[in-house]
């Protein structure tokens, strides 16, 4: 095998969940069978599958955080990012595939939050796979009707003076929030700023961390 997983480490070096050795399930058997059939029939290869897992593992909210930090420090980049999120992300070297990204900006008067009520669309080619809660009935059902209550459950209480814009990813676009740069960060480098940008700040269920 060109890519041996028997050491129980993922390609990124993290341990896989322990259920890798839990009793085999029907659906796991189906996955193995389909994967083997696709390889036998020459549709894909074990190496392609391993490379795809590596590519997905390599994507994380840290990538989006770098995009946000660049936008905070480079006004021309920010303008390009808001005009075309995909092109600006590629400009920074991120392999986002066919992702069509729209970046929505928080201001002192507007807070944006992202959802997919029909399934679980997420800017995965920039931020990696979505958190479990993003795919739940609770989040998908409620955030479009009572976003303030939902955000409060995440610990984010917004005054009525800030309008909320909910974005439902119903078709071909994906979204990230460009949060506002935290106060007191004028002296921070772009890399230090990126450390303040959380995944939830880019979904809109949180804010960036405060400067240390």
């Amino acid at each position: 095998m060109p890519h041996d997983h028997t050491d129980h480490l993922s390609p990124s070096g993290h341990p896989f969940r322990p259920d890798n050795d839990a009793p085999l399930t029907y659906w796991q058997v189906m996955e193995i069978a389909i994967r083997e059939l696709l390889i036998v029939k020459g549709i894909t290869t074990a190496a392609d599958i391993a490379a795809q897992i590596d590519a997905m593992d390599a994507r994380s909210p840290a990538d989006g955080a770098k995009v946000v930090a660049r936008a905070w420090t480079d006004p021309a980049f920010k303008a390009r990012l808001l005009a075309n999120g995909s092109a600006a992300s590629r400009e920074m070297g991120f392999d986002i595939g066919s992702l069509r990204l729209i970046v929505v900006e928080n201001t002192p008067h507007i807070h944006n939050v992202i959802v997919c009520t029909l399934c679980s669309c997420y800017p995965r080619n920039l931020l990696g796979l979505p958190p479990d809660w993003y795919k739940t009935r609770a989040y998908r059902s409620r955030v479009v009707r009572e976003p303030r209550k939902v955000l409060a459950e995440f610990g984010l209480v917004l005054p009525d003076s800030i309008r909320i814009r909910v974005h439902d990813s119903t078709a071909d676009m994906r979204y990230i929030v460009l949060p506002a740069r935290p106060a007191g960060t004028e002296e921070l480098s772009e890399a230090d700023l990126a450390d303040l940008v959380t995944r939830d700040a880019m979904i809109g269920t949180g804010l960036p961390k405060a400067a240390a």
């Binding site: 795809q52 029909l118 998908r140 059902s141 995440f154």
Partner: peptide, 27 residues
């Protein structure tokens, strides 16, 4: 098509994906 329906509180629990789950995604 569940937007706007009643549902319970958010459960913030998250899990890392198992190898077999990552393979499904890759396939």
């Amino acid at each position: 098509d569940m937007g706007g329906l009643d549902a319970g509180p958010l459960d913030p629990a998250e899990h890392d994906f198992a190898l077999w789950e990552k393979r499904v995604d890759a396939l």
